[in-house]
Amino acid sequence: MSQPPIISVRNLSKTYASGFTALKNVKLDIQRGEIFALLGPNGAGKTTLIGVICGLVKASAGQVIADGHDIQREYRLVREKIGLVPQELHTDAFESVWATVNFSRGLFGKPRDPSLIEKLLRELSLWDKKDARIMTLSGGMKRRVMIAKALSHEPKILFLDEPSAGVDVELRRDMWQLVRRLRDSGVTIILTTHYIEEAEEMADRVGIIRQGELILVEEKAALMRKLGKKQLRLQLKTPLAAIPDTLAGYALELAGEGQTLIYTYDDQQDDTGIAELLRRLAAQGIDFRELQSSQSSLEDIFVSLVQGRP
């Protein structure tokens, strides 16, 4: 029997006092131990959804169950299991790294555990900075401190709100490795991002939110299979003014002032039609210098989904 979801969002809506509706009847289940990426353009409702689950934002309607507990009625049981790394770098500028991480652990109801905090700081390459005031750290280091704070009470669920915002490539790679290690240790991770590369790299499942509505939830691999396109690009020796009528049955388009012929096909089919197409091109005397095939990225899929719906 499959395990119940670790987070179950039921008909969640949020309308702010200004009248702006940030979430519209959102329904979402997050499975235990998965990395779930919530994608959406700015202002889509990603941060509001996280805010409601973590207790920062009051929902207008609906319910959220986390690890079997209602987030409002049983907030203590829920919150001690959740860690949050917000998008903005909110830090206690005058505190030391060591003090602020220990503060977070205590705040979430856990007794002091210097060896655990030391391990955490070492893992995040912060140990050398443990006595430094946070105000003296770089932006990347501050981001690590915020991750350390969120992990200090050993949460079962970790929310990362735009974790790559303003961090360099090295830290991003380190963070991805850390997220994978956490997932391997049983932590469920929900990340919001508009760096699609991040979701493509890490997520098991993807949810796409647009104007407060969750328009799609799918396994990343299945999504890319289902909605991803495969294309064959031929660099022609002689530019074409138009696609010959004899090739009208193929999903072809011209690009690069007639220099590139693009064939879009379904690679799930036994017969992709490539061999026949190449034969017909040869018969028409259309020669090419080189050919390459490519798979559409999650970003392409995301853009088409977000823009493709009214």
Binding site: L56, R76, L77, I82
Partner: peptide, 14 residues
């Protein structure tokens, strides 16, 4: 003011 209130609001405290 600094924004660190997020931690207090998301903590299991009454």
């Amino acid at each position: 003011w600094s924004g660190t209130i997020y931690e207090l609001l998301s903590a299991p405290v009454s």
